[in-house]
């Protein structure tokens, strides 16, 4: 039986703009994935704990507030601390070009800015899931 890719979509921190996250969530569902949507104002602890319980393959973070260097990295650091290595982390939102390499180095493997086609995200996830 075919395994379904499970993705947690979360909005960390103080940012009420969830249209992008919802569009991506829908696109992933339409690509046959199971998407757990957690909503707004999440802490890194809530996101990582939910990812553990839901046994997801991917965590997708969305942030438009500019605090991604703190909030995305809180998540990757907490994953590392808990010894969770088989979860792919991707992020999207308003992210300046110069931050992208730093995010990738810190474990946010895929970074997607405005104008990204949803198919691109789907392809990236399919290629890079770790199990």
């Amino acid at each position: 039986m075919e395994r379904k890719i499970r993705v947690l979509v979360a909005k960390p921190g103080l940012d009420g703009h969830d249209r992008g996250a919802k569009i991506v969530a829908r696109a992933l569902r339409d690509a046959g994935m199971e998407v757990v949507y957690t909503g707004l104002h999440q802490t890194a602890e809530m996101i990582v704990e939910s990812a553990v319980q839901e046994d997801v393959d991917v965590i997708g973070l969305s942030l438009l507030s500019g605090a991604h260097m703190t909030l995305f990295l809180d998540v990757t650091q907490l994953l590392k601390k808990k010894g969770i290595e088989d979860v792919l982390v991707v992020g999207g939102g308003i992210i300046p070009e110069e931050d992208v390499p730093k995010l990738k180095k810190a474990g946010v493997t895929g970074v997607f800015g405005p104008g990204t086609h949803c198919e691109e995200i789907v392809e990236f996830i399919r290629k890079n899931v770790k199990r």
């Binding site: 690509a31 199971e34 998407v35 949507y37």
Partner: peptide, 24 residues
């Protein structure tokens, strides 16, 4: 598509960090 949007957690996120609760 065989996919699913699972959105029930949104209403329960305050429970996410309670280790006496497991949500799937």
């Amino acid at each position: 598509s065989g996919g699913a949007l699972l959105g029930d957690r949104v209403r329960m996120m305050e429970l996410a960090t309670d280790d006496g609760v497991f949500i799937r």
